[in-house]
């Protein structure tokens, strides 16, 4: 393959757009991690459910695309809160950490992910479903590279969502409470914050973000049952690369994963595309476990 600057640029642009989506899912994983001290293994399935819900809302019920997106976000948030209330609440009560109880949480999430995937399979079947949306915008042309409107929209909407979240976390009172809960639950509780409620809120927020990502990815790729699992891995890679608990870190990590993956697929081998994200994940974990922007967490004795 001869080297061509234009195509390189194209791969990077596509990598950035898909990377922004990885970034918002990574943000959700990061939020849940800071709120509950667990990695939610079924997060990829929430993303998949979000995509399907958006598809159903916009194609079968006929709600316009932005409305379908908000609807899917609300529904996914409710689903996430339900999961948190029913399962994770019990487990966190019996002690978190990485003892046998902590291992239980991981296994619980793993089981839930498989069960949710199967539920989606039973409802919607195994076929990849197209998600056609009319945006009414012309493809953007940069140096003979035409960027489809869905990619543009994805990047813009993702960045907007992140901006809103950033504003919410930094400058509102509820956001302050969320950060307090993430920082230290006991002290937050003493300060009069309803910690269980806020943990539910964090979970719902993270799931809404995942659903938004699902609805955004839908028009770019098709919607299918198995999409969640790889997304979880890539988003996790993004979260780790950027450093857990860092908002710009998640975004930049996602973009890095997206670019890395697209370049790997273009210049090394396209069929191994899904492996590159794991490769980056492993490399970062080995050499910089705290991520590029994270702070090294102190080990609790």
């Amino acid at each position: 393959m001869d080297f061509d600057f234009g195509s390189l640029l194209a791969f990077i642009i596509f990598g950035v757009t898909i990377g922004v989506v990885y970034g918002i899912v990574a943000l959700g994983i990061s939020l849940i991690y800071s709120g509950l001290d667990i990695v939610h293994f079924a997060h990829g399935e929430i993303y998949m459910f979000g995509a399907f819900l958006g598809l159903v809302l916009s194609q079968q019920i006929g709600i316009p695309y932005p409305g379908a997106m908000i609807g899917a976000m609300v529904l996914a948030a409710l689903l996430g809160m339900f999961i948190e209330r029913v399962f994770y609440r019990r487990l966190t009560r019996s002690g978190g950490g990485y003892t046998v109880a902590g291992m239980g949480m991981i296994i619980c999430g793993f089981g839930m992910s498989v069960a949710l995937m199967n539920v989606a399979f039973l409802i919607w079947g195994a076929d990849a479903e197209p998600f056609p949306v009319e945006f009414g915008i012309e493809p953007l042309e940069i140096n003979d590279i035409s960027i489809p409107p869905s990619y543009l929209l994805t990047a813009v909407v993702s960045l907007c969502l992140m901006g809103i979240l950033n504003y919410f976390l930094r400058y509102t009172k509820i956001g302050l409470a969320v950060r307090a809960v993430a920082h230290n639950k006991d002290i937050a509780f003493l300060m009069g914050i309803n910690v269980p409620l806020f943990i539910s809120l964090i979970f719902g927020l993270a799931c809404a973000l995942a659903a938004a990502a699902g609805v955004l990815v839908g028009p770019m790729q098709s919607v299918q049952v198995e999409m969640g699992y790889l997304m979880l891995m890539k988003a996790f890679a993004a979260a780790v690369v950027g450093g857990f608990g860092s908002l710009p870190g998640a975004l930049i990590g996602g973009i890095l994963v997206g670019i890395f993956e697209n370049l790997g697929a273009a210049y090394i081998s396209a069929s191994h595309k899904d492996i590159y994200a794991f490769l980056l994940l492993i490399l970062v974990l080995m050499y910089r476990p705290a991520g590029l922007f994270g702070v090294v967490a102190k080990v609790k004795a």
Binding site: Y33, I38, V39, F41, G97, Y98, G102, M103, I106, M233, F236, A237, V240, H272, D274, I275, A277, F278, L279, L281, I282, L285, M286, P289
Partner: peptide
Amino acid sequence: VRLEGAYLALATLGLGESVRIM
């Protein structure tokens, strides 16, 4: 050696799945 709990779980999941994809 460097990771604990959930991090390790996801790293090993990634490795295991990469083997299958390979």
